[in-house]
Design a binder for these strands. Structure first.
Lengths: 123, 123
DNA sequence: CCGGATCCGGTCTGATACTG
DNA sequence: CAGTATCAGACCGGATCCGG
């Protein structure tokens, strides 16, 4: 995995379209779910794995790697032996908050029974 | 195609997570690109096909169907013989504007050389 | 020629098993 | 616990075909 999507990346850069370019990074089924969990204080591999969508371990590992490569996530060693890492959003990652927020607002308005933003943000 | 993703949909509904739910609709590589083009006054199949990302015709047809089923897009007959349809965002679809906007803002800030929002919105 | 539908090879996903 | 390996099958996307 982690093949470089060379062709898409070229397309993106050539067109210089901001939508196309960001979708190269977060435009798949799982990445934004991982970002969501990182926003809501899940930081270890285990925590991230425990989300209701049950992300497969290999996909999770791959997405974390990609997010790190893109500079949205940074790894931090929190235990020496055995080595354990926690994952945190960088500033660049945290800047996705308006995206997250607008997605939630839309869902709350248009999809019945989704958990309300106000309830989520009680932290 | 257009298989119903039954399992994911169940997961989404069970968790009631707004992020998860909206990603069921727009969380793939192409859908948001189609939405982008609809925002920027491309409405025929041909127009949509002409975007720099060169979406394959079968994928485009599939995404338009899904978007219609989700109620984000409506089709309008604009020519009788041969039948020709134009695609428009519904109100629900237009409500994605803040999502679109936040994505563009993020790209402008973090990805070099992407076309600026101000330039795009000169319409 | 336009708007798709169909076919098909290759890639990626994701369930499971496995390792340190 | 935190990942890596494996592998069948789903899905993507390129090419082609077809009705109007």
């Amino acid at each position: 995995m982690l093949i470089d999507d060379k062709k898409s990346a070229e397309d993106c850069h050539r067109s210089r379209c901001p939508v196309s370019c960001i979708l190269e990074i977060i435009g798949d089924k799982w990445t934004l779910l991982v970002v969501r969990d990182l926003f809501f204080d899940n930081h270890t591999f285990k925590d991230l794995q425990a989300s209701p969508e049950k992300i497969p371990t290999n996909i999770l590992a791959d997405r974390l790697k990609r997010l790190e490569l893109s500079g949205l996530v940074r790894r931090e060693l929190y235990q020496q032996r055995p080595k354990r890492y926690a994952y945190y959003l960088t500033e660049k990652g945290l800047d996705l908050e308006p995206v997250m927020r607008s997605l939630i607002v839309w869902s709350n308005k248009h999809i019945a029974d989704t958990i309300k933003l106000e309830d989520i943000l009680k932290e």
